[in-house]
Amino acid sequence: MKKTLHMVAVLMVLGFISGFSLVRMEEYAAPRIEAHRREAVEASIYAIFPKGKSYKVLELGGREIFEVFGSSRSPIGYAFTGKGKGYQDDIVVMIGLYPALTRLAGIEILRSVETPGLGGEIVKPFFKNQFQNLSASEPIRYIVGRAPASDSEIQAITGATVTSRSLVRILNGEIEAVAKLLRQK
């Protein structure tokens, strides 16, 4: 009995000390971690809207939409994140729409673990720049084998059709949902 009490007591003390230290550490770290997260989100917003100077967070339909402002009072665009399954794992992308909701301002990849050299190329400027000024009034299509012909087509990465297809699928889904929310506003 005494032995059991001893064991319980030791583990309790260890647990208490551990818990206490971790709470203090969390108090120190949490605000900094949140600040870093904000910074990453902001960096991607301003990468899509280079003329942007500030933004307001809108809570619509359960998601965060960033209304981006430049030097004037009216918004220069909207930014929101999209997430979905890629080839290897989830892809997280920041999407920018111009205020008319008919054209994309651009995209930034926030998270991607696709195959380096193939699907991993989606973070490169040559791929991302295709989305600048792309038409958003109809679903975006990825093209294999020939050059894109219309306003809503982009060139898939050779050898990374699945990644390209997944990204386009994520974009179409998110754009449609957010555009609907914004029009209702």
Partner: peptide
């Protein structure tokens, strides 16, 4: 936590 706070 230290890593996440100082070297994101």
């Amino acid at each position: 936590l230290f890593l996440a706070a100082n070297f994101p």
